[in-house]
């Protein structure tokens, strides 16, 4: 089973740092630019990457990430290209924890077992499927069994309204990290983020993989406040995608702005 996320959390914990995990969409706006973006994120200090696997109908995402998905698919990139890009990043950064967020139909269309086999082959550590709740994970299409067979971490989302039973179940399944949803709704920076400290405490108590807080975290100030909820790190997606959207015409500015953003966010996760 992939250990890169676990190793990274141990290393950060010794340094009293939280993890900063930027989220961007694979092949947005195209394969080559996306490769440069990913390299910039890592070289500016990202502790891990969570990458969006483009889908035509991202129903858990707000307008910013919807547009990113659309740009990526409009470039003509396909499932094989997304895997190839991940493989290139893996070769460049052998210890970097990498996860993807992928809607279930993309997994099912490739064949669930084949999807996880491909994930393992390119060196992917973890897969998060936002539209498969834990009670559907192993009903008929056994996502969990395929993931384990190919030694890929299954990451689950824990919502702030999770019942005790749900928190326990999620804690028992999720590997690598737990995506702690800060609030209801969809991704985006238009609404502030929530601080579900009780749920975060319970996840720890039930031995869940370390929590990363996401949804609505966009500034270094947000990051500092978010780190006080007791999570192991934070994820920022729409804020990164907004920079990409704004600087589509100017690749140099795009990369330097992203780099400055990652540095500032990373600094904010260093606990004093």
């Amino acid at each position: 089973m992939s250990q890169r996320f676990a190793d990274k959390f141990s290393e950060l914990s010794l340094k009293h740092e939280g993890a900063f995990v930027p989220f961007v969409t694979l092949c947005d706006p195209d394969y080559e630019t996306s490769l440069s973006i990913l390299k910039t994120l890592v070289e500016s200090g990202a502790d891990a990457l969570e990458l969006g696997f483009p889908f035509s109908d991202p129903c858990a995402d707000g307008p910013v990430i919807q547009k990113a998905n659309k740009r990526a698919l409009s470039s003509g990139a396909r499932t094989a290209d997304f895997f190839h890009l991940i493989g290139q990043i893996r070769q460049l950064y052998p210890t970097l924890p990498i996860s993807i967020l992928v809607y279930s139909n993309v997994v099912v269309a490739r064949g669930i077992d084949k999807f996880y086999a491909d994930a393992q082959a390119v060196g992917l550590d973890a897969v998060l499927i936002p539209d498969v709740p834990f009670n559907m994970l192993s009903t008929q299409d056994d996502f969990c069994a395929c993931a384990r067979r190919h030694e890929v971490n299954v990451v689950l989302i824990c919502p702030p309204n999770a019942s005790d039973h749900t928190i326990r179940s999620i804690s028992g399944i999720t590997q690598g990290y737990t995506y702690m949803l800060s609030r209801f709704g969809i991704t985006g920076t238009d609404y502030s983020f929530g601080q579900p400290v009780e749920v975060i405490k319970k996840l720890k108590e039930y031995g869940a993989a370390p929590s990363l807080l996401g949804f609505g975290i966009s500034t270094p100030e947000d990051a500092k406040i978010a780190m006080q909820t007791g999570v192991a790190g934070i994820i920022a997606g729409s804020a990164c995608e907004k920079i990409i959207e704004r600087q589509l015409e100017n690749k140099t500015a795009l990369l330097s702005e992203l780099s400055a953003y990652v540095k500032a966010m990373k600094a904010a996760t260093r606990l004093s």
Partner: peptide
């Protein structure tokens, strides 16, 4: 069929 929605909607 099934219930393929984000966890947050299950309740």
């Amino acid at each position: 069929g099934g219930q393929y929605v984000p966890e947050v909607l299950v309740p």
